[in-house]
């Protein structure tokens, strides 16, 4: 499964420009599902038909990044954030554009307190020395993402954009395993989650499932002096109780708990006080769709080196397979 994760994490897909990820998933699942379609926002919807209940499983394809808003005389690029970026976390990071151009994020050095650093005092250096040279490499509006690789080490994965290619990998793996069930399953790879849970809303409106799950990442409380959170790496996928966008519907939550217990799959409860997930927008679509979530405990979310545990990932696949049966 690591091969699959590695491939997905390597695809380029900032919010609003998820085509590479979408094409990759399409090529893998082409003959494994009954129908594949795409909607106006770029959501990829893969359907395994069935006569029973409709389940929607949503994992967002998009990743955080930067967008070029201005190119100056000397060839430096100014940028805006796509999704949640902290200046101190992106400082000194390498980024890569769709066409392969690489840049590094740096800052105006006349600042006296690095804590006060803001994005509009930062720039991307692609090594150009004039506007003309820069414009030959990058256009206004081009987007870049972290340039970093994906490593498997002692059962853990260290990689960029585990948020949320890990969710995509889980759904792809599940579709490949093709769990036996009468139910109709919608594997939905959503667009533009990081900028406001946008894709999931239109996708859900088109499907109107009986129940929906967002498959995403969640923070942990197991790093030194971290904010308190009862989630640990390696202790099982989490069953979402609440995040900033949703309180899980009791029917969804209870079904997950019951299935995890009966199949002896380890799980943890997730209450994420920051950040939302696609569940938040699905939940209030079309008069209300009972929604919840399964998440992979992830350290250092939104950095270029997020860490997840393969065991949690594999258990998440198993839990979801039991959930839809």
């Amino acid at each position: 499964m690591f091969e699959l994760i590695n491939k997905l994490a390597g695809a380029y897909g900032p919010s609003g420009n998820e085509k590479q990820v979408s094409a990759l998933i399409r090529s893998i699942l082409k003959d494994k599902v009954d129908e594949i379609r795409e909607d106006a926002l770029g959501n990829l919807i893969c359907v395994k038909k069935g006569s029973g209940k409709k389940f929607m499983l949503a994992a967002h394809m998009d990743q955080i990044g930067v967008i070029v808003t201005f190119i100056d005389d000397k060839g430096f690029l100014r940028f805006g954030n796509i999704g949640g970026l902290r200046p101190q976390v992106i400082l000194g990071q390498r980024v890569v554009f769709e066409n392969g151009t690489t840049g590094v994020i740096w800052y105006e050095e006349n600042i006296d307190d690095i804590k006060k650093l803001k994005l509009d005092k930062m720039y991307i250096d692609i090594g150009a020395t004039s506007r003309e040279e820069a414009e030959g490499m990058v256009k206004l509006g081009d987007q870049a993402v972290y340039a970093a690789d994906t490593k498997l080490q002692n059962g853990k994965i260290i990689s960029k954009c585990m948020d949320n290619r890990i969710g995509c990998a889980i759904l792809v793996q599940m579709a490949l395993n093709s769990p036996k069930t009468e139910n109709e399953i919608y594997y939905v790879f959503t667009a533009q989650e990081e900028v406001g849970l946008r894709g999931a809303r239109t996708a859900a409106f088109g499907i109107v499932p009986d129940m929906a799950l967002a498959v995403d990442v969640t923070g942990t409380g197991d790093t030194p002096e971290s904010k308190p959170m009862a989630v640990r790496l390696g202790a099982g996928p989490t069953i979402k109780i609440k995040d900033a966008s949703v309180i899980s519907h009791p029917a969804v939550k209870d079904r997950l708990i019951e299935r995890a217990k009966s199949a002896n799959i380890p799980y943890q409860f997730e209450i994420m006080t920051f950040g939302g997930t696609d569940a938040g927008s699905i939940h209030i679509t079309a008069g209300g769709i009972p929604s919840g979530g399964v998440s992979v405990p992830t350290r250092h979310i939104h950095s270029s080196a997020e860490i997840v545990d393969m065991k949690d990932v594999e258990n998440a696949v198993e839990l979801l397979e039991h959930f839809v049966k």
């Binding site: 308190p228 959170m229 009862a230 109780i241 609440k242 309180i247 209450i271 006080t273």
Partner: peptide, 17 residues
């Protein structure tokens, strides 16, 4: 409020709803 953790000592951590 919502219970976010149960400590070994029996005290409960919580977050606002």
């Amino acid at each position: 409020l919502i219970v976010t953790d149960i400590e070994e000592s029996g005290f409960l951590r919580f977050a606002p709803v």
